[in-house]
Computed example of a mutant assay.
Amino acid sequence: MTFDLSPRPLNPAPATPKMIWPNGAKSALFIGFDVDAETAWIGNNPSNVDRMVTTSHGGYDARVGIAKILELMAELGLKGTFFTPGWTALAHPAQCEAMVAGGHEIGHHGYLHKLPDRTKRDEAFEEIDRGFDALKSALGIRPVGYRAPSGENFPELLAYLKKVGIRYSSSFRDDILPYRHAGPDGAVGPVEIPVNFAFDDWNFGMSSRTSSRPLFGRDPVLQLWKDEFEATHAWGGVTTLVLHPQVSGRPMRWHILRDFLKHVIDKGDVWIATGAEITDHYETLEAASAR
């Protein structure tokens, strides 16, 4: 495969139209959970399927994590978006049905949490199709939002997502406001609700024997999240969370998340919304700006 390294913006998406958040809010919070379960450990390394201790990290989702996260969201009266691999929905239907029963949005997160690879386009498209089929079979849902497994994407995949009905993505790291993707040929793509890597709990709360790294305690994580949120709030952006029940569903980290969410709620001028709600709002503003 030949790589085009010519100087150009590698993401050709145009700038965001003037962003006004609903109800006089100064910024927005998007609470996104990646319900990877065991797929986080077997999707890109299938040999782990026979390593039961390794996969037990992901097994925590179904045994404890999902229920505790749903308990927290109900306590605070919040709705989130649960990006769920199709395999997870088929393997743990009762836990995933509880997410739907709680009134939360279900997003697409591949089928087996495989890293999208431009050199394997057919496999990447199959992951999308199988994910849709599994979520429909297990939960009766066809999602409109997508978060890339392992956080990667490429132009043909973005175009395919738009073609099959995905209205928004939440994977890119290049803005603090939503924007509309554009293909190299100018084709209209999905809306992007960008991610801030500082809000990915995996970076601070997950380690294993095969990918060991330090774990961070309550004070540094909570202060980082508060500081980053406060700065994003001051700039009028969207704070997008990338949370995992197998991380933030752990006892101490559950309390970090609870305290952070209470801090945001106490501001009183933050619009807390699902990905679909943010996309609806963005598209309304987009249509108005085009008139």
Rank of each mutant, 00 (worst) to 15 (best):
M1H: 03
T2A: 11
F3E: 11
F3A: 12
D4S: 02
D4F: 14
S6Q: 04
S6A: 09
R8E: 15
P9V: 15
N11Q: 10
A15F: 10
M19G: 02
I20H: 02
I20P: 04
I20N: 11
A25H: 07
S27K: 11
F30L: 04
I31R: 02
G32Q: 04
E38K: 06
I42C: 02
N44C: 12
N45G: 02
N45Y: 00
P46S: 10
V49A: 06
M52L: 14
T55Q: 07
S56F: 04
Y60T: 07
Y60W: 09
I66W: 09
I66E: 01
I66L: 06
A67P: 05
K68R: 00
I69V: 11
M73F: 13
G77F: 01
L78E: 02
K79H: 12
T81M: 03
T81L: 09
T84D: 02
P85D: 14
T88G: 05
A94T: 14
E97Y: 10
E97L: 14
E97V: 10
V100E: 11
A101I: 07
G103E: 13
E105W: 05
I106S: 11
G107M: 06
Y111T: 09
L115I: 01
P116G: 14
P116T: 10
D117K: 08
T119E: 09
K120Q: 07
K120I: 00
K120F: 01
R121L: 08
A124T: 08
E127D: 11
E127L: 06
E127W: 06
I128R: 10
D129F: 04
F132L: 15
K136D: 14
S137G: 09
G140K: 14
G140V: 15
P143V: 13
G145S: 13
G145M: 11
P149V: 10
N153D: 08
N153C: 13
N153T: 10
F154P: 15
F154D: 00
E156S: 09
L157T: 13
L157W: 09
L158N: 15
Y160R: 12
G165H: 09
S169E: 13
S170R: 08
F172M: 12
F172Q: 01
Y179F: 06
A182T: 15
P184W: 12
P184F: 09
P184Q: 14
P184G: 15
A187G: 15
G189Q: 05
E192S: 03
I193L: 13
N196C: 02
A198T: 05
D201H: 09
D201W: 03
S207A: 08
S208A: 00
R209H: 13
T210W: 03
R213C: 01
L215R: 05
L215A: 04
F216N: 06
L224I: 01
W225P: 11
K226W: 04
E228L: 00
E228N: 04
F229P: 03
F229D: 00
E230L: 15
A234M: 07
T239G: 03
T240V: 00
V242I: 10
V242T: 08
R250Y: 01
W254A: 13
H255A: 12
H255N: 04
L257T: 08
F260M: 11
L261E: 07
K262M: 08
H263R: 13
H263N: 09
I265F: 06
K267D: 00
G268N: 04
T274P: 02
A276K: 15
A276W: 03
I278N: 04
T279D: 11
H281V: 10
H281F: 01
Y282K: 08
L285P: 00
A288F: 02
A290Y: 12
A290V: 14
